[in-house]
Amino acid sequence: MDFCRAVAAAALGDPSKVAYVPLRASARFPALMEGMIDLLARNTTWTLRREAALKVQFAGVLFYDTQGFLVRRPGGIQTAAELKGATVCVEKETSTLVHLRDYSADNRLEIMPLEIDSAIEARRAFFAGRCSAYAADSAQLAAVRIEAPDGPQSVQILPERIAKEPLSPAVRGGDQSWLTLVRWVLFALVAAEELGVTRDNLQSRLSEAAIRRALADGDESDRSLGVERGWRVRAVQSVGNYGEMFDRNLGPRTSLKLDRGLNRLWTQGGLMYAPPFR
């Protein structure tokens, strides 16, 4: 949601000009392709099949995630290998389902997926005991864990990570300017963190040449994208840099308590960095 606010600030000059549309996984791409939404920003994995077959375009990795399993504790299951022949809850029409089937086949586990229409219903099915495990993105499992009816200590995420899940905002194919704007809003938030620019110190640091090059210069690109000058500054001013956004929504001081892991800057052992702006 913070990323949507940053895009709205860049494109429309106001981070509050966002209408959020909750969608099931099975409805997200039809909604995007039919113009019901302009930006798909949820836990959606960037894949070749989606870009090639669905004709949607991914702006860049907003969150590097992995796929795992949530199981009940105590339940005897300590590793993914112990799920042989088990029923596993999984959301319908997701990359999670594809990866689950591949992992089961590759490891001869004969896992039986119980396909559920939505994440909420999959969570309920798992807690109701309809399946031995729940397969989803690890960050999503962390959110499910804190809502366990018997408390977070009653469930655990298994140590195995069975697939990469690069989560990316997506737009309809055919609108290059919109794709470019969304993509470079993301890069502006990452670049701000690389440069040590925060929401609080942004204005005082705009006099520095490196900060201007990354966030303030660009009359030509502004005109080509059809936005008012200063769109990168507006994006950072609205939500802070990438690290601030992560910490506020997912980090150790939130209920999810997620470590940044792969989402650290490249200078800190992660995968996040912004391409040059010039």
Rank of each mutant, 00 (worst) to 15 (best):
M1N: 04
F3L: 04
C4Q: 12
C4V: 07
A6R: 00
A8E: 01
A10Q: 05
A11H: 04
L12R: 05
G13C: 02
G13H: 00
D14W: 14
K17N: 03
V18M: 06
Y20L: 00
L23Q: 01
R24S: 10
F29Y: 03
F29V: 07
L32R: 04
M36K: 12
T44L: 10
W46M: 00
R49Y: 01
R50Y: 14
R50T: 10
R50Q: 10
R50H: 11
R50G: 05
A59P: 08
G60M: 13
G60P: 08
V61M: 12
Y64N: 15
F69T: 10
V71C: 15
R72G: 13
R72V: 15
G75T: 07
A80P: 10
A81F: 05
K84H: 14
K84R: 15
T87M: 13
E91C: 12
K92P: 04
T94V: 11
T94S: 15
T96G: 11
L97M: 07
V98T: 01
L100R: 04
S104R: 13
E110A: 14
D117E: 15
D117K: 11
A119W: 03
I120A: 12
R124W: 03
G129T: 14
A142T: 10
V144T: 04
E147F: 13
D150N: 13
P152I: 01
P152A: 09
Q153P: 01
I157H: 11
L158G: 14
L158N: 15
E160W: 13
E165R: 00
P166Q: 09
P166V: 09
S168Q: 02
V171Y: 04
V171F: 13
R172M: 07
G173R: 04
G174R: 11
Q176P: 08
T180Y: 09
V182A: 11
V182K: 01
L186Y: 01
L189C: 03
V190F: 13
A191F: 05
A192L: 00
E193P: 06
E193K: 08
T198V: 07
R199Y: 07
L202Q: 04
L206Y: 12
A209R: 08
A209D: 13
I211Q: 05
R212D: 10
R212C: 04
R213T: 00
A214L: 10
L215T: 14
D217H: 13
D219V: 00
S221H: 07
D222L: 07
R229L: 02
R229M: 06
R229P: 02
G230V: 02
R232M: 12
S238D: 02
S238L: 07
V239I: 03
E244K: 01
E244P: 01
E244S: 01
D247A: 12
R248W: 02
R248K: 07
N249S: 09
L250T: 02
G251V: 06
P252D: 07
R260P: 12
G261C: 15
L262V: 08
L262K: 09
N263M: 08
G269S: 14
L271I: 10
P275K: 03
P275S: 01
P276I: 03
P276A: 02
